[in-house]
Simulated assay, not measured.
Amino acid sequence: MTARPRVMTVYGTRPEAIKMAPLVAALEADDRLEPVVAVTGQHREMLDQVNALFGIRPAHDLDLMTPGASLAEITARTVLATSELLRADRPEVVVVQGDTTTVLATSLAAFYERIPVVHLEAGLRTGDIRSPFPEEANRRLTAPLADLHLAPTATSRANLLRESIPGSRVPVTGNTVIDALRWTTAQPVEFTDPAVAAFFDGPSAPRDLLLVTSHRRESWGAPMVATMTAVRDLAVARPDLQVLLPMHRNPVVREVIEPLLGHLDNVLLTEPLDYHQFAHALARATVVLTDSGGVQEEAPSLGKPVLVMRDTTERPEAVEAGTVRLVGTDGATIRRAVDELLDDPLAYAEMAGAVNPYGDGRAAERCVAAIAELLGVGERAADFAPAPDLVSV
């Protein structure tokens, strides 16, 4: 019997793990391919939580992170470690996801080892190499190294074609985050933090809930002070509004958030929620205020208006559909946008319309078909194309 081609997935952060999980499951269900999971440990605790939720047991755990490591140190360490792993394991193909340091470093290591690279969620672009930092550079630099570009949308595919990537190497698959979200929100949830459980299910469960996340590197410092001051002002002006803010563990983030918001009765600051709990919190939110990339895909898929505290986005599809709005980091702009959604039912309805340009829950299936074609053991599926009336999950 001929050995099945080995497909190594490599990831290191929680967002990567969430979007890789459906692909790992689809690879395991396909008898043409042999999946091998490797993790770098870039987000240690949050990464382990996602793997446990989806039942993934990595074959290789490089555990590369050390406190206070610079981007250069993380990149160098990851290139060296993944190079050694690839020389020892020799998979037929390596799959990376998104735009993290793990993605760029692993792609470079695979290129040096002459192992084909598959880039999951390829082709996202803002047009500004410094925004978001360093993610835009990571994904742009990964593109020339990749042999197969799994573009989540037609917009992402068009970005790659403009960069002279051959169209034959860029299938449109939909985004695997929708596969993950569909599965996760269908599972019963138990909030492990008593304060969060009481927040959602207690007698004073909120009518209007503003879910806030902020952590990106370009948000640090003055921009984050401005955005979190706006959240404070909203909470003070609207005592009936409940604000839930799961805080990133980075002290740079917490030293801004806690002094501004920690004393307000209608603001609940929590430790990071695991993905299962966060997905259910997102489903119960009224409005989402974020600087996250993945949340821009997830929240519209649940029919939630999203206000993005950034000046640019690599995910323009939902902006064009009207379910996401860029509000930047100006406090007055943020306050007006939240107030409008909470006070104007028509404005809310326009944004909350169940428009889902990102997927139909079958992205992983298309990704596996494209990988099988690359390896000569199958044929590519038809590209994903969102229906005009595609409903939310």
Rank of each mutant, 00 (worst) to 15 (best):
L47V: 11
A337F: 00
T329A: 14
Y275D: 03
F54N: 07
A279W: 03
A69M: 15
V50A: 13
C367T: 05
D147M: 06
T192I: 06
R217K: 09
A88G: 10
T229N: 06
G55C: 03
V308L: 11
M8H: 12
P35D: 09
L269A: 11
T313Y: 01
L104D: 08
F384P: 03
V37N: 03
F133D: 01
G322L: 02
A146R: 11
A198Q: 13
G98E: 00
R217S: 12
S156G: 03
V37S: 04
V94G: 10
L326F: 05
V256H: 03
D193V: 09
A364H: 06
L33D: 14
L289I: 02
L23S: 11
F54G: 07
I74T: 14
A180R: 05
V319W: 03
G262V: 10
P203V: 13
L244K: 12
N138D: 05
T126F: 10
T153K: 04
L85S: 14
T9R: 09
R44N: 01
P194T: 06
P206K: 00
H280S: 11
V243F: 04
L71T: 06
V391H: 06
A109Q: 09
G361E: 04
E84L: 12
D89S: 14
Y275G: 02
E298V: 02
